[in-house]
Amino acid sequence: MTQREHLRNLALLGLLALGLLALPQGLSVYLTSFALFTMMYVVLALSWNIISGFTGYTSFGHVAFYGIGAYACAILVVDHGWSWVTTLFAGALVAGLVAVAIGYPVLRLKGPYFAIAMLGMAEGTRVVATVWDGLTHGGLGISFPSVENSTSTYYAMLVLMLITIAVAYLVAHSRFGIRLNAIREDEVAAEALGINVTRYKLLAFVLSAVFPAAAGGIQAYKVLYIEPQAVFFVQITIAMALMSMLGGKGTVIGPVIGAVLLYTAQELTWVNFPTAHLIAYGLFIIVVARFMPRGLIGFAIDRGWVRKGMVH
C-alpha cells in the first residue's frame, strides 16, 4: 500500500472517530448503547481475526479472554475498590498472561485440534468462575453498585475500538503480519524461511487476547452485573468468528464490516422475532458459507473490485 493510501485510511479513521465522538449527543440511551455494543463486536471480531484470520488458527474459545476481562473488572471494582478504567488494563494483562500460558502448549495443535482445545479452555474458565466462590462469588455472579455509566463506557469502547483497528491495521500492513499469513499458508515453509513460528504464533495469540479482555471489562461495567453463563457464553465466540468470516477474515476491513452488519441484523431480528432469530442466524451462516466462502471482501477481490494482498 502506498503512503497516500495509508494517509487516506488514517483520514477515514479520523473522520469515523469524530463522528462517533459526537454521536451520544444526538442519540437516545438505547441507540447509544446499541452503538457501544456494535463497537464491542468490532473489537472482538478484529481480535479473533489476528490469530484466526491472519495466522490461520481458528479459535472456538476466544470468549475466555472476554470473560477474564469482565471478571477482572468486577472483582477489582467491587471487592477491591479500584477505579474501573484501571481494571481494563489489569484484565488485559491477565488475559495476555493466560494467553502465553495456554498458547504455548495449545498452539502446537493444528486445525480442528486447536479449535476444540480452545473450546475446552473456554469451558474451563467458565467452570473456574462458577466454582471458585472465594474469588468470583460463584454462580450467583457479581453486582456493581449502581452508577451513571452510559457515556463513560461508550467513550471507553470507542477508544478501545480505535486502538484495536489501528493495531490490526499496523499488523496487516507490516512484515510481521505477512509472516503471520505465511504461517497460515504453510507453517513448514514459513519455518524454512527463517520464521520462528512458535514466537510469532504466541505474539499473535497474545494480541488477540488483550483487546477482548478490555472489551469484557467495559461490558461488565456497562451492564453492572456479570455471571459465568453470561460472560463465558459460547455464542460470543461464534459471533466473533461469523462476523470475521462474513466480512472476510484475514483482512482489516472485513471483520469491521461483518461485525456492524451482523450485530445490526441480530438486533433487528431479535427485537422483532425473538424465536425466529436463531433460525435466521443459521440460514445466514449457510448462505455466506455457500456463496461467499471468503466473505464480502473475498467476493470483491475475486471480481477485481479490491486489490489482492495487504502490501503493495
Binding site: 505477512i178 499469513n181 505465511a182 499458508e185 504453510d186 515453509a189 524454512a192 524461511l193 502490501v311
Partner: peptide, 24 residues
C-alpha cells in the same frame, strides 16, 4: 536456504508478499 521439489509458495499471498515474508 532451499527451494522445494513440490513448490511451497504461499498460495493466498501475493508474489510480493511471498518475498517479504522471509525473515533475517
Amino acid at each position: 536456504t532451499r527451494t522445494f521439489q513440490i513448490t511451497r509458495v504461499f498460495r493466498e499471498m501475493t508474489v510480493l508478499e511471498n518475498m517479504l515474508s522471509v525473515t533475517g
